Simulated assay, not measured.
Amino acid sequence: MSPDGIRPPTLLALPSYLASHLAQIGRRVLADALAERGLRLPHFAVLTGLADFGPLAQHDLADRLGLNRSHLVGYLDEVERRGLVGRERDPGDRRRQRVTLTDDGRALAGELLTLAQRSQREFLGVLSEDERATLVELMRRVVNADDVARSRLVG
């Protein structure tokens, strides 16, 4: 049976169905690569989020990453035990915890980014570099449009 005959053609015509399966494949490949370092996807998200944005209030980090605030605490506990992040009282609001990368966390975030990029190239290996760039740009536009729409509802 050809690969096209495995899944129902009606579903293969739905972008949301394809995007969901593409996400599952990409998530699996990245999760496997991170597991070799003893990390999970939320740990990677925390480290790269802090590398991109700098120190953040704990609740702001959860919101930017799309993580449940109470779940974030557990992820932070794990990476803090490994010496990758530190938490301190936010000088602007003593009621808040501010999360920062340590030097080891910053170094690991850079290594993980390289690992993640390699895993993504592998899982999208059937596409050319230009096709991968186009795919990423199109997906980013959809995500950005959703972010704008959601911010209007909240703000």
Rank of each mutant, 00 (worst) to 15 (best):
A45V: 00
A33I: 05
L65Q: 02
E122P: 00
V154K: 13
A35C: 01
D146H: 12
F123Y: 11
D4P: 06
V136I: 07
S151Q: 13
P8T: 04
L61N: 04
P15R: 08
G92E: 09
L101W: 11
G110K: 03
L101S: 03
L153S: 13
A33P: 08
A19H: 08
T134R: 13
A57P: 09
R69Y: 11
R96P: 00
L56F: 09
T48W: 09
P55R: 00
D103N: 01
L56N: 04
D103P: 01
L14Y: 06
A35G: 07
H43P: 02
L14G: 02
A149R: 15
R40T: 09
D77N: 11
I6A: 08
L76K: 01
V46W: 10
R96E: 01
L34G: 01
A31L: 03
T100P: 01
R40P: 04
G26S: 14
R121N: 05
R132A: 06
A116D: 06
R106S: 06
S151Y: 11
G54P: 01
G66D: 05
L50E: 01
F44P: 00
R37F: 14
V126R: 14
D77K: 09
L14K: 05
Q24V: 11
E80D: 14
L11G: 00
E131N: 02
S151R: 13
Q117D: 11
R37W: 10
T134G: 09
L124H: 13
L11D: 04
H59S: 06
D63Y: 10
R140S: 11
E80A: 14
R64W: 07
L67R: 12
D60N: 01
T48D: 08
D104H: 12
L30N: 00
M1V: 12
R132S: 04
L41H: 10
D104Q: 15
R89Q: 04
L61S: 02
L41Y: 12
L115V: 10
D63Q: 12
A35V: 02
T102I: 03
I6P: 00
R7S: 10
S2M: 07
E137H: 13
G54K: 05
R106N: 06
V29M: 08
A33F: 08
D63V: 02
R140N: 10
R40E: 15
V46Q: 01
E129A: 14
P15W: 06
V99I: 12
D103Q: 03
G49Q: 09
G83A: 03
G54Q: 03
G38P: 07
D32S: 08
R40D: 10
R37V: 02
R118S: 07
V79R: 02
A19R: 15
Y75V: 15
M1E: 07
Q58E: 15
E137C: 05
S16D: 13
M139N: 03
P55S: 02
R95L: 12
R87P: 00
R82A: 13
D104M: 08
D147Y: 13
A149W: 13
Y17Q: 00
A33V: 07
L124D: 05
R37G: 00
D32L: 14
L84Q: 05
T102W: 04
A116F: 08
D104P: 05
L138I: 07
R89C: 01
V126S: 15
